[in-house]
Write a protein that binds this DNA or RNA. Sequence first.
DNA 1: GGCCATTGTGTTATATTATAACGTAACTGA
DNA 2: TCAGTTACGTTATAATATAACACAATGGCC
Lengths: 165, 165
Amino acid sequence: MARKTKSVDIAFRKHDHGRCQRQLLSEARQLCEARKLRLTSRRRQVLEILLASHQPMGAYDILAELNRANPAARIAPPIVYRALDFLMSEGLIHRIESRNAFISCVHPGHQCTAQFLICRDCEQVAELEGRDPALLVEADNLGFAVDHSVVEITGICAQCQKHAG
Amino acid sequence: MARKTKSVDIAFRKHDHGRCQRQLLSEARQLCEARKLRLTSRRRQVLEILLASHQPMGAYDILAELNRANPAARIAPPIVYRALDFLMSEGLIHRIESRNAFISCVHPGHQCTAQFLICRDCEQVAELEGRDPALLVEADNLGFAVDHSVVEITGICAQCQKHAG
DNA sequence: GGCCATTGTGTTATATTATAACGTAACTGA
DNA sequence: TCAGTTACGTTATAATATAACACAATGGCC
């Protein structure tokens, strides 16, 4: 029943985080299975780190987490970037261009246009369900074949405005 | 009379480039004068480089141009970044987040939401006149105070589709 | 199972993009 | 002309990302 209402996403809202994480990980597994793709343990680790954080993380933050988890290993950047590339190509995570950061996707697999509200105070990010903006229609009218869109709105969320207030 | 029609911008269209450049530089001058800001020679140089290119350029590309123009000097990155910061803060140029690049603004001073169509074949960028997308209204409904928005659509422009086709 | 082709991982080195920190120069207004 | 401010120049370094190559694991096929 929440389906059709305005879909602000779970950032900016309280939710059962552990449950949300497990849910999304399980969706990721299913999706990879359906597509005959390998959600290897490295890829899963990276996804889990992003799911746990539920906020944007830089590649090197993720790297640090990985190295904390595997103190023996000394993992290097390309490993992280490769896992991120895989996860992005399957729509399991998004890149936040205006922050050089990555965040887990809240609607894995939906090929919708992801749109983000980014609070520059608390650093939280809300992913909005992307109905195509008018812009995409216009692009189409111009004969421009869209293949990826980046929509990132920066500002201060309601919560932080109150606190500052 | 072109005012009210669809405003695809000058990239993706033929136009008198020299005239366009001079026009925009002159607007920049007026704008700075009106705001009591200093369009110093460094800042003007950087703006001119971007106007001349009319395509997105990386900071280090601009740096290379500057150094080509002043072979004596050996200009360093902070100089470029500072000029770019100034020009961005006055709305004379935009940053293309998804390319780590900068491009001159086609509507200097208009505080409209800039939106870009980026062709990944010819690398040209069209700036669309930004009427507020529905998303901004939605942000507002959520009590989110927007202060900057990034809208970048990547794909293949009509021209390049023909050539490939 | 043994083999090959493909995909993924690990490692080193390096490229690219951006900023911190500090001193000097130029302009602005009294 | 002086003080305050803004801009510029310089050095060093931080933060982000990729190239190139070797090795390992997996999957399909016989």
